[in-house]
Structure formats: structure tokens, C-alpha cells
């Protein structure tokens, strides 16, 4: 979304001095906390209930592969580093490094998504689907929505990369990169929560 300067493009500042789009993005992220909060709360509410009610598995302990998920978590974490380096590059006016770091971020994001696809497939092979039990439903829907957020982020980053190579992202356009970055980091912190709360906690 663009800044709409309804006075013809030369309005210097807003009432708060803050960029409209950036304010929008932070409001959106604040709101998205409630979205993922609801999904995580659903998972936590149903955690252990299959076992307690004697419903058939697979149960989390039987399917989670902690070393594998740790590796993909690490990949997503590092994509936050490349993202912030991309922003730092364009703020200095370095479009070449911007493109490199954006591409790196997208590739790390895609790797994470590939890893998630592999993990889901492995779970299905072990007999866990959306329909199997409460764990299957709440796990796949939570991580699936996170994956969808990552996918949207990758699409945004790749679009910005294309625009940058057409010379349409310049130093003064760094806000566009900054906004995509905020979204990307948010997706990363959601995964930080999911990794600890869903995978690691007993």
C-alpha cells in the first residue's frame, strides 16, 4: 500500500511524524498477535487430550523430529539476519547488496517451506493427517497458517527483488523494504514461539 498524500504528493509530515504505512504495518502485526495467539491457544488447549482420552495416535512424542525441526528453525532465524542486512544495504543506497540479501532471504524462506512440506509428508506417512485426532488438526492448522504467512512473505520479497533489478527500488524507497522486513521478522518470531511451545516443551 502506498502513502496517500492527498494534497498532491508534497505533504512533508503526518501529525505524528510517523510514516502511514509503517504505522499500518505495526497495527497489523499487533492484530496478528491475536490471530496466532488464538491458534496457539487452540493447540495448547488440546495438547495431551488425545492421550488423556485414550484416542489413537500418532501423538506428538512419536512423530516430532527435534533435530530436523531445529535445523529448519535455524534456517528461518538466519533469514531474519539476511533480511535486516538487505534493509541496511538499501538504506545505504546499495541496490546490488539489497538484491543479494533479498534473494538469500527468499531462498532461506523457501528452504524452510520445503522443510515443512517434507515434515508434513513424513507425518502423513506415519499416519497423522488433519483428520486423525486433535493433535493432527491443531498441529497442521497452526503450522499451516504459519507456512502460509511465510509463503506470502517470500512472494513479497521476490516481487521486491524483481522491482529492485528494474531499478524501481532506490534509496528513498527503503520504506518498502523495511515494511516487508517487519512482516518477515514477525513471521520469524511466531516460529520462535511455535518451536519452543509446540516442539520443545514437554
Amino acid at each position: 500500500m502506498a502513502v496517500h498524500t492527498t494534497t498532491g504528493g508534497h505533504e512533508a509530515t503526518t501529525s505524528t511524524g510517523l510514516d502511514n504505512r509503517k504505522l499500518f504495518m505495526w497495527l497489523f502485526l499487533g492484530s496478528d498477535c491475536l490471530f496466532f495467539g488464538s491458534l496457539i491457544a487452540t493447540y495448547l488447549m488440546y495438547r495431551g487430550r488425545d492421550e488423556a482420552l485414550g484416542k489413537p495416535g500418532p501423538h506428538p512424542a512419536e512423530v516430532f523430529d527435534i533435530p530436523y525441526t531445529s535445523a529448519s528453525s535455524f534456517i528461518l532465524l538466519m533469514s531474519s539476519l539476511t533480511m535486516v542486512l538487505a534493509l541496511s544495504a538499501i538504506q545505504r543506497g546499495d541496490v546490488r547488496r539489497l538484491r543479494i540479501w533479498l534473494l538469500a532471504t527468499s531462498l532461506l524462506g523457501l528452504t524452510f517451506l520445503g522443510g515443512q512440506a517434507y515434515e508434513f509428508t513424513a507425518f502423513v506417512h506415519e499416519g497423522l493427517t488433519l483428520r486423525t485426532n486433535l493433535f493432527g488438526s491443531s498441529f497442521f492448522v497452526l503450522t499451516g497458517f504459519h507456512g502460509a504467512h511465510v509463503a506470502v512473505g517470500v512472494l513479497m520479497l521476490l516481487s521486491i527483488t524483481v522491482l529492485a533489478s528494474q531499478g524501481r527500488i532506490r534509496q528513498q524507497d527503503s520504506m518498502t523494504v523495511e515494511l516487508a522486513g517487519l512482516y518477515w521478522h514477525f513471521v520469524d518470531i511466531v516460529w520462535i514461539l511455535i518451536f519452543a511451545l509446540i516442539y520443545l516443551l514437554p
Binding site: F35, S38, S137
Partner: peptide, 20 residues
């Protein structure tokens, strides 16, 4: 957002057979 999630859960139950 909470009702979006609740509606997603109902919809997933109906369209994809989840167990929420």
C-alpha cells in the same frame, strides 16, 4: 482475529474433516 480463527476451525472441520 479470534473469530477469524474460530471460523477457520469450523470451516476446516466442514471442508477438510478436522476435529476441532
Amino acid at each position: 482475529p479470534p473469530i477469524s480463527v474460530a471460523l477457520f476451525e469450523v470451516s476446516f472441520d466442514r471442508f477438510f474433516g478436522t476435529n476441532f
